[in-house]
């Protein structure tokens, strides 16, 4: 297209049309996922520490078992916020990406909790822990979806800053509450 423009000096309709097709969105997903590994490793240490806190001060076994659940929940959030939201971008309601991610994450969290209830029955997740996981997946998915704004050809930096100011407090509050409920779980 560029050589043709340089030759003719005129831009036709195709040249002037920016696209963001399903395929164009899909190729960006691996990059987004790869950039999360380092953060995920740090998160794993935090997961182990908060999951091990128990009435016996600290339980190594609980730390391992419960942090595995938290890791699975986080992977669900990554799937919702970094994979599903970009793929389904035009069909998910809302213009703000964090709301799109929260919706995708909230639904994925329900599916996760249903599956966990069936598959991880030995863990016996009770209400507080289920709420903690739902909040955690929804908040993480909302943040990750918001991060996808950097990949699109239609979001403005000013707009992203605006939605960050709106969405970030909710995401921080939900994630903090999730961790508090998760720590409180073994004491109930």
């Amino acid at each position: 297209m560029l050589p043709k423009f340089l030759q003719t000096g005129k831009a036709d309709e195709t040249m002037r049309t920016v696209t963001f097709s399903l395929k164009e969105r899909a190729v960006l997903i691996p990059l987004e996922v790869c950039m999360l590994w380092k953060k995920l490793l740090i998160a794993l240490i935090v997961f182990f520490l908060v999951s091990g806190i128990s009435p016996q001060i600290f339980s190594f076994a609980a730390g391992l078992a419960r942090s595995a659940t938290l890791l699975l929940a986080t992977l669900t959030a990554i799937l919702a916020g970094t994979v599903l939201t970009p793929l389904l971008l035009p069909w998910i309601p809302f213009r703000q990406f964090w709301l799109k991610g929260a919706l995708a994450g909230g639904l994925a969290a329900l599916l996760f909790l249903f599956t966990a209830d069936v598959k991880l029955h030995g863990l016996a997740l009770h209400g507080l822990e289920q709420l903690a996981l739902w909040l955690w997946i929804t908040a993480c998915s909302a943040f990750l979806a918001m991060n996808f704004t950097g990949c699109t050809p239609f979001t403005s930096l000013s707009g992203v800053e605006k939605e960050l100011r709106r969405g970030l407090p909710w995401q921080i509050a939900a994630a903090t509450l999730a961790l508090i409920l998760w720590v409180a779980g073994p004491f109930m």
Partner: peptide, 13 residues
């Protein structure tokens, strides 16, 4: 790009 619209009244232009 008609399918995609972002936030109104935010861009600095």
């Amino acid at each position: 790009m008609k399918d995609f619209r972002y936030l109104d009244e935010t861009a600095i232009l």
